[in-house]
């Protein structure tokens, strides 16, 4: 991993199209400003991982699972 030291107001460039600015440092929190092309999605890592993980789990749901839940169990198709 590349590790760089930056001051407030300074930035790093990632390739030609992405810039990350250090906006503010408050205690243990850092505010970053990100410039990126519209087709590059920028997200907090943990929320991205959460969605990714949930999508992977959801991809394993089988027809039978849903069928078991939606059939019987007091639910009746009229």
């Amino acid at each position: 991993m590349l590790i760089l030291t930056r001051k407030i107001g300074e930035s790093i460039a990632i390739g030609d199209r992405i810039k990350v600015y250090v906006m503010e440092i408050k205690g243990r929190q850092v505010r970053l400003g990100i410039e990126a092309p519209a087709d590059t999605k920028v997200h907090r890592e943990e929320i991205y991982q959460k969605i990714l993980e949930e999508n992977r789990l959801a991809a394993q749901v089988e027809w039978k699972h849903l069928q078991d839940l939606t059939e019987g169990k007091g639910e009746r198709e009229d």
């Binding site: 991205y48 969605i51 990714l52 999508n55 992977r56 991809a59 849903l66 069928q67 939606t70 198709e77």
Partner: peptide, 16 residues
């Protein structure tokens, strides 16, 4: 869909 970038075409089907 996030985690499945290679699949880009879908169709929506009623479960029943």
């Amino acid at each position: 869909i996030i985690g499945f970038p290679e699949c880009k075409r879908y169709v929506l089907l009623e479960h029943r």
